[in-house]
Each structure stands twice: as C-alpha cells, then as structure tokens.
Design a protein around this nucleic acid. Structure first.
Lengths: 198, 198
DNA sequence: GTCTATATGCTGATAGAC
DNA sequence: GTCTATCAGCATATAGAC
C-alpha cells in the first residue's frame, strides 16, 4: 500500500526510521538527532515533526524496527541447527553480529526510557523477539523458571560480548567480529550445558 | 599533599573528577559535560580547562579513577572466598553492583575512544583491574589461553547483566540489584564449571 | 495534509582578557 | 582561577507554499 507519491517522498516516515537506525549504528543511541535524520533524508528540520511529535517518538519507531530486524536475524540463524544447544549458540552469534552492526540490541528494544509497555507496536515487537528464544530455552531446561534464568544468562553474555567489543575491550584480545560471535556462542554452549544439569 | 588552598578549592582537579563520576553515574558516559561538572563543583565554565585541556581529558581522568575504585571493589569481594569458582562468582556480583552504581565499568575503562594505551595512568589502572581477575581464571583453567577465554566470558556476562539491568530489560524479570548480582554470579559459576572441563 | 523556510531558546565546548 | 564571549548543534514552533 504505497502512499500517493505526493511529495519528495512516498514514505518519509519509513525513510526517517531508516536514517535513525543508520545514525544509531554510526554514533550510538544517545547521538540520535532528529535534525540529522532529516538532513540525511533530504528534508527540512521541521519535516519529521509531521510524523513524530518528539525525538523520543522517532527513537521508539527505530526501536520497533530494530526489534523486527533482530527477530528476523535470530530466526534465520536457527535454520539448520541440529539441537537446542546449537540453536542457542547460533542465536548468540547472530545477536552479537546484530548489535555490532546496529550498535543496539535488547538495550534499545527494552529501554525503560522508551516505556516499551506503553507503546503497543514496540511492546509487541519485543515480545516477538523473546518468542524466538523462549522455546529453545524451554526445550533445554524443561521448566519455565529455569528457562527464563538460562535465557537471561544467555542474553546477558551475548550482549556483553557485543558491547564490550564495540567499546574496545574485547577487541584487544580478539580483533574480528567472527571471533567475538564465536566467543559468545561458546559462552552460551557452556551456559546451556550447566542449565541441563551437567 | 594538598595544593596551597589558593582559591575556592584546595584540589579542583580531584573535585572535578568526582563530579564527573557522579554525572556519569546519573546520566551515562555520553552525558558527561565539562560545563555541568564545573557547575557542580561551584566554579566557572572555563575553570576546568586549567586542569583538563578537553572534555576527553576529563573523561580519561574519570575512567582512571573508576578503574581504581573497581579494582578495590573486586579485591574486597575476594576476601573470604573459599575456592576459585566462588572467587569468580564473587567478582561477578561485585562488578554488577559497581556498574549499576556508577553506570560504567570495563566499557569506560577500556573505551577505545579514550586510547587507554596512550594514557599511562589509565593504561596502568586498567591493567591493575585485570591483575585481580587473571590469577583466579588461571587457577581454574591451568593454561593461559583458556584463562583468557574464561575471563572474557565471565566479564561479558557480568557486564551484560549490569547494562541490561540499567536499560530496563533484566529488571522486568528481577527488579532488585541483588537478584541481578546473584544472576551474574550464577552465570560465572556455570562458565567456570564448563571451563574446568565438567 | 505534507512539506520548506526560518526562527526561538537552550546547552555545550572552547577561546581570550583580566 | 574569573568573566565574558563565540560558535555550533539541537529540539521544537510557526507561517506559508503546494
């Protein structure tokens, strides 16, 4: 359902969200600026306010889009994984790559600042991401509480690898993204093994 | 060795670093502003430039101080730990508490932005932190490479727990810092067990 | 209804004169 | 150290063109 191609853009809203994601990828969440997103989209500084009443609204839209992209990446990583442990490890690697590419992950999608529960689209997108991971953890642990615990550990480890790589700590030991992704995958294998009660 | 108590402060430099750490704790690393640090210290906006040529220099000094405080917290956590696994777990919990309190940890101390290797004081302070953790990992694994791998996993997991708690993700499942610290400690126990080759 | 042009009012990083 | 600029970047508001 494309818009009527009225002005310079058929869909300025979507273009702004894309620009916002690019900006976040380059300079981080805090550096997102409505003015800069407008500049990159080739519109005037006031134009975004037809679509987003405030900077926070644009950030929420970007977070929602990020969650959709993340869920897709995680689902893709799950194809051709043989067992639950390897499935979990695959999502760890995919998550690291996602965060390194977009400079954002669960921290953006679930940022308290965005009140994700108050925004239906964002809340739903976040839930969709969790829905990809929860069945894997459940399969590994059997009961719901242990599954949540494992998932927390798994996500925390992957997120830590990603952000510490970005800030430069991990990269002084393993320079490439591939190494970092593999490191996170190994951590998740270890956590899965422990959760299975080995 | 106090300065000569010339103007309003005996030691403006130290006061500014403290103010910088407070600001970071309240609003995050990106929000550190020289002007605000000056305001809190009760001096004019230009005063800090007598001690720090640039905002980045103040940030480096704050990172150095943070590393010293972190090393002290980790050492304190190690007292009365019975075995290497519990020692590792204890540092995970202490690290989470530190990051939650200061809104900064390894990401600040080793931030590539700060070129920690080019700053002797910061580089040394960062090394001191690692020197607290390395022996524990070595005791667990026996060889250096596995120790580094374990340490990476351990730090990444603890850091992930802390920052995801801060952004609001973890806190929707476990509200208190204590729970989060314990979650990180458990993750490190699992990682240690796997590294020991269970 | 969607945008452009432009302005307001703020905050910050520095610079220079005292 | 102080004070007083300078200059930039941003969020957001408004007026009017299409």
């Amino acid at each position: 359902m494309a818009k009527r191609e009225s002005y310079h853009h058929g869909d300025l809203r979507a273009a702004l969200v894309e620009a916002a994601l690019e900006l976040i990828a380059e300079r981080g969440i805090d550096a997102l600026s409505v003015a800069e997103a407008a500049r990159r989209t080739g519109v005037s500084p006031g134009a975004p306010y037809r679509h987003f009443p405030t900077r926070l609204a644009l950030l929420k839209a970007a977070a929602t889009r990020a969650a959709e992209l993340l869920a897709a990446d995680l689902r893709a990583a799950l194809e051709k994984t043989a067992n639950p442990t390897e499935a979990l490890a695959a999502t760890a690697g995919a998550y690291v790559r996602f965060v390194v590419r977009h400079r954002a992950g669960f921290d953006l999608v679930f940022a308290a600042q965005l009140r994700p529960l108050a925004d239906p689209a964002l809340g739903e997108a976040g839930r969709a991401v969790m829905d990809v991971l929860l069945p894997i953890a459940l399969e590994l642990t059997g009961d719901a509480q242990s599954a949540l615990d494992l998932l927390q550990q798994h996500i925390a480890a992957a997120h830590g690898f990603a952000v510490l790589h970005l800030s430069g700590f991990i990269s002084r030991y393993s320079p490439g993204v591939d190494d970092v992704a593999e490191g996170a995958a190994n951590a998740s294998r270890a956590l899965a093994a422990a959760a299975r009660g080995d």
